[in-house]
Simulated assay, not measured.
Amino acid sequence: MRRTTAFCVLLASICTGLVFGTVLNFDFSHTTPLRISVSGAPGAPLSVQAAGSAFPNAGEVRILTRGTGRLIAERGQLRYRAQAFIYQKGYKPIDRNSEIVFSGSARKKELKDLAPAVLGMREGSRVALLKRTDSAVRLEIVIVDILPTVLRGPWIRPPAGTNLPEITPGKDGIPVSVSGPQQGPYSALTVYQAVKGSGVQVKPHDTVTANYLLVNSAGKVLENTWKKSAPAKFKISQALEGLREAVTDQRCGSRIAVGIPAAEAQGKNDLTVVIDILGTESETGRQTGDGKE
């Protein structure tokens, strides 16, 4: 009888703990999944909304948009814009914490916490990295837009019968060759847009981030920056005369083919350049992701 009574008391204690969450120190507080909504064009300033109370215990990566561009590999080319926001449980407004616009080489050691959100992804992806802060009710949400190093879009070919270069794209849309003029040397600077961009216009004193293929009049490739570990950067004011004139006032996100006469190429031969205008940096140091500000 005593054993039965003791067992009943123990069972009652356990049940009390299960109901009130006190004796066994259980936490039965209601949580809802964290939902994130992001608005804004890739590379542009974003607005973020979040709701929910279930925070990850460690860094969590969520793919919000899966890109189809070039794969980001260790030591390969990389461009991204990362914008960090602070979310606090119970509060809808989100405070912008910081942002980074990066163009260079993808290195895990330098990417640090961002590495899982970048390496192995494809250009055009939008990724959310969720990071716990030192507060139990605050969460850092980092939105990473992986920007293109190869521009894509509706392909515009040069009109037939004109003295314009012809681009041959290869894997991932990277130009592998470009023909010179079909009707003799360039008599004047020749420019046409193969892909039309919609970003900000390049100004005469900007620093441009770009990839390009440079070919001489014999069709020999002199330089191909797509094969390098990072996109090129150059000041418009210090570029070849013909290239400076061709790129100024173009919009970021454009791919242009430029035929430069020898007189404007600082040499004895014509040059043909295919250039993807990826982003700009003004004299004040302000950078654009893909120019959509």
Rank of each mutant, 00 (worst) to 15 (best):
T31C: 07
T32H: 12
L34R: 02
L34K: 00
I36Q: 03
I36N: 00
S37W: 06
S37Q: 10
V38G: 08
S39L: 08
G40F: 05
A41D: 09
P42N: 06
G43H: 08
G43N: 05
A44T: 11
A44N: 11
A44P: 03
S47A: 12
A50W: 01
A51T: 09
A51S: 14
G52P: 01
G52K: 07
S53P: 00
S53I: 05
F55Q: 04
N57T: 14
N57K: 13
N57A: 14
A58L: 04
G59A: 15
E60I: 02
R62F: 05
R62A: 15
R62N: 05
I63D: 14
I63A: 08
T65Y: 08
R66F: 07
R66N: 12
G67H: 02
G67D: 08
G67V: 00
G69D: 00
R70W: 07
L71I: 11
I72V: 15
G76S: 11
G76D: 05
R79W: 04
R79H: 03
R79Q: 11
R81I: 01
R81D: 05
A82D: 03
Q83A: 14
F85S: 12
I86H: 13
Y87F: 15
Y87M: 13
Q88S: 15
Q88I: 04
K89N: 08
Y91I: 14
P93N: 00
D95F: 13
R96M: 15
N97L: 15
S98N: 11
E99V: 05
V101N: 07
V101D: 13
F102W: 06
F102Q: 02
S103E: 13
S103G: 12
S103F: 09
G104R: 10
G104K: 10
S105W: 03
R107F: 08
R107E: 15
E110P: 03
L114W: 01
P116T: 07
P116W: 09
P116H: 12
V118N: 01
L119T: 02
M121K: 15
S125V: 05
S125Q: 02
V127A: 02
V127L: 08
V127S: 01
A128W: 00
L129K: 11
L130I: 06
R132S: 07
R132M: 09
T133D: 03
S135D: 14
S135K: 10
A136Q: 10
V137E: 14
R138V: 04
L139K: 00
E140K: 01
I141Y: 08
I141D: 02
I141V: 13
V142I: 14
I143W: 03
I143F: 13
V144W: 00
V144T: 01
V144L: 03
